[in-house]
Design a protein around this nucleic acid. Structure first.
Lengths: 230, 230
DNA sequence: TAAAAAAAGTGTGTTTTAAACACTTTAAAA
DNA sequence: TTTTAAAGTGTTTAAAACACACTTTTTTTA
């Protein structure tokens, strides 16, 4: 057996582009960079890079994400592979889009300046190069679906959070208002949060109890057939 | 601006592999071929091909599907891109998996022999080459989810079908028994089927009414905010 | 020609889940 | 001491999901 079977086939460049979501001030945000190279220099874009021969796609995405945020354990999921023939005017290149969720307070923000990157409210993000707008659209749709069926929302929050923060997060993701009591009742019935003895005093005089996601409990419940449904 | 920006980046082979589902005799089936070339000659595999420079991924999948089935309008959806570094022992090649749903009675079955391909019950399909088993697993999971939230099941049935066939189809997809009355009540409440004056006599003495998916009605209901939920 | 067999067809009651809804508590600031 | 701003807390109603069994039709067979 030789490698010659495939020798007549075309090879292509494969980009990995990341939609990085964050959450702050009751708003869903995405992290964008201003390109400092051609084509489309100066325009806003998702962060990305090209797949190297010796790595798989997840590794490429982790590399790209780490480079921009300094973070190592980022929630991240492959979204879709975009392949329009002329999507990149410079050369035939496909792009595998990943979306990532990070706690916006937790990354090394000094890295952002070096890359001239910036957090935007999702709602008023600028136009992006190539097909990156479509990638963002699609990632939001995925996030909306997934947030209802898996406990991934916590990735966007600090370890300790108030119920109000949690509710505002889901409102931002789902782009609709939720009823406070129904939301809390629902989450309580899931029984996967730990109520701490600590209060967050930053947003009110009275103070609000802090909660934590009980990942161990969640995992063991899942093993017993439980499934997160909001 | 030149093309030289990307000139140091690695290029890779990109395969497109298709999981083709069918439905017959109350069983969910997949179409496999026996490879007639190295590597892994003689082993069972998904059908696939390599992406060409001048086509996008959907076009490549359509090409591959048409070649094997003779069909042109196949329901088809991109699933996931598999990228383990050594997934193909012959060369660094990634694979974009697509899954497709076809009416098993409707393809040109003379093409199958030429490619030494064969329908298998999903349950007792043979081991496949490379990472194709994982592709099949993932496609089934996607099909199960999607069949509950989009009316794609009809793609696996002839235009006219009985309620029993429809129920057996969903039972095969979801891998669980459903209650006949609840199933019919549910579908009736969706109000997207046309009951024909015709009966199918093939499976009983009494005969069973044939139904048709009313795609126009479905589309117009969707525009009014309806969404298919089984 | 009556009985058996095999699939088609059809509704209701119960339980669970979703949704609507408003007042009280707390603590700081005025 | 009154005002203010957010936190916290249950109940009622409506809708959806689920469990559940007999009758009809027609062919086959005894």
């Amino acid at each position: 057996m030789t490698l010659s079977n495939y020798s007549n086939e075309d090879k292509v460049l494969l980009a990995v582009d990341c939609i990085i979501f964050g959450f702050d001030k009751e708003e869903l945000k995405i992290l964008l960079i201003q390109r400092d190279f051609e084509p489309e220099k100066g325009k806003w874009s998702l962060i990305g890079g090209f797949l190297k021969k010796e790595e798989n796609l997840d590794e490429a995405a982790i590399r790209v994400l780490h480079h921009l945020t300094g973070l190592n354990d980022i929630y991240m999921e492959q979204l879709y592979t975009f392949s329009k023939v002329d999507r990149d005017p410079a050369d035939r290149a496909l792009s595998v889009a990943y979306y990532a969720l990070i706690d916006i307070k937790n990354h090394d923000s000094s890295l952002l300046k070096r890359e001239s990157s910036k957090w935007f409210n999702l709602k008023d993000a600028p136009n992006l190069i190539f097909d990156h707008n479509r990638m963002v659209e699609r990632s939001l749709a995925r996030l909306q679906r997934k947030a209802l069926s898996k406990p991934i929302g916590f990735e966007l929050l600090p370890t300790k959070f108030t119920m109000r923060q949690l509710q505002k997060l889901y409102e931002a993701i789902l782009e609709k208002k939720l009823d406070k009591r129904n939301f809390i009742n629902k989450f309580n019935s899931l029984d996967i949060l730990i109520k701490l003895d600590e209060k967050d005093m930053s947003s009110s005089k009275k103070g609000a109890y802090l909660f934590q996601f009980d990942e161990e409990k969640y995992n063991s419940k899942v093993e017993d057939g439980f499934s997160f449904k909001l």
